[in-house]
Computed example of a mutant assay.
Amino acid sequence: MSAKPSTLTERRKAATQLDIARAAARLFTEHGAEGTTAEAIATAAGVAPRTFYRYFRTKEDAVAPLLVVGAASWREHLAATEEGTPLLRAVEDAIRKTISAADEAPEFTWTRGLLRAAVAEDSALAAVWHRVNGASEIRLRPVLARLAPQADELTVQLVAAAATAAIRISLERWAGTDEKAAPAELAVRCFRGLSGGLEV
């Protein structure tokens, strides 16, 4: 699990970054990648352009904090698993809980817009999405290792890769549809397909 900001200054910085990320996600959703500028994001977030560039190099980078929050939430659900739960079942349960809970958040609607923009328009936005997924996979490994201390390192890496890919694929497929409900069961199905050969 990623460390949470500990000082007041760090918390304020994190809050500002998240406000900018929400504004960026909304504008990407409403106007697409080409129709969104860093200056427009700064205005929507209520900050000066220089503040925007203090935190982010590009307009695409600005969405990362919002995506990171979702990834952290998923690891927290998994870390809260009852002791003794088989690892693959624990991962399935955490995937289902996380995506089902996200369905109620306005940010989740923006995720669809972001992914549509990333897939259809903007390779830089797609790169941010893949970078966040890669970082999430690495941070997931110690959580899985604590839940299954009997599992070897390779198995832990494979489960982390399967879980991360399952969530990513399900969200990308969902983003290309008009389905309103979050793809919790699709994500579980993807995970079962990707982890079918694993024994934990």
Rank of each mutant, 00 (worst) to 15 (best):
L140W: 01
Q157Y: 06
Q150A: 15
A124K: 14
Q150N: 06
L154F: 02
R131A: 15
E153Y: 02
R168Y: 12
D152F: 09
I167S: 00
A162F: 03
V143E: 00
V159D: 00
L154P: 00
R131N: 12
R168D: 00
A151N: 05
L147E: 03
D152K: 09
P149R: 14
H130W: 05
P142H: 11
L144Q: 02
P149A: 11
Q157R: 14
A148R: 03
E153L: 14
H130M: 11
R131L: 13
G134W: 11
L158V: 07
L140R: 03
D152I: 14
L158Y: 03
A135F: 05
I138Y: 13
A166G: 01
L158E: 04
S136P: 10
P149T: 10
V128C: 13
Q150C: 07
S123G: 09
D152M: 10
A148E: 10
S136M: 11
E137R: 15
A166W: 07
R146T: 13
T164M: 04
W129M: 12
Q150F: 12
R141L: 09
R141S: 07
E137S: 11
L147Y: 08
S136D: 15
H130R: 15
G134F: 14
D152W: 07
L158W: 01
A162D: 02
E121R: 04
E121M: 08
L125V: 11
R168I: 01
E121V: 14
A161R: 01
A165Y: 08
R146A: 13
A163M: 12
P149C: 08
I138L: 12
R131I: 09
W129N: 14
R146K: 11
D152P: 09
E137P: 01
A135I: 04
A145I: 08
A127Y: 05
V159T: 04
R168G: 00
S136Y: 10
L154V: 04
V159I: 13
V143T: 15
E153W: 04
I167F: 02
E153F: 04
G134V: 10
R168H: 08
T155F: 10
D152T: 13
A165N: 06
Q150W: 08
L125N: 10
L144G: 02
L147G: 05
I167H: 00
V128L: 11
A162T: 05
A145S: 09
A165D: 04
V156L: 06
A148I: 11
V159F: 00
D122C: 13
P149Y: 07
A151H: 05
Q150Y: 13
A165Q: 10
R146M: 11
L158I: 02
A145E: 08
A127W: 02
A162V: 04
L144C: 04
A135R: 08
I138S: 07
W129A: 15
T155I: 12
A145W: 08
D152Y: 12
L125K: 14
A124N: 07
H130S: 13
P142L: 11
L158T: 10
A165S: 12
A151E: 07
A151G: 03
V132G: 02
P149L: 11
L144V: 06
A162L: 06
A127P: 12
R168M: 07
A124I: 06
A127R: 15
V156T: 12
V132K: 06
I138F: 07
T164L: 02
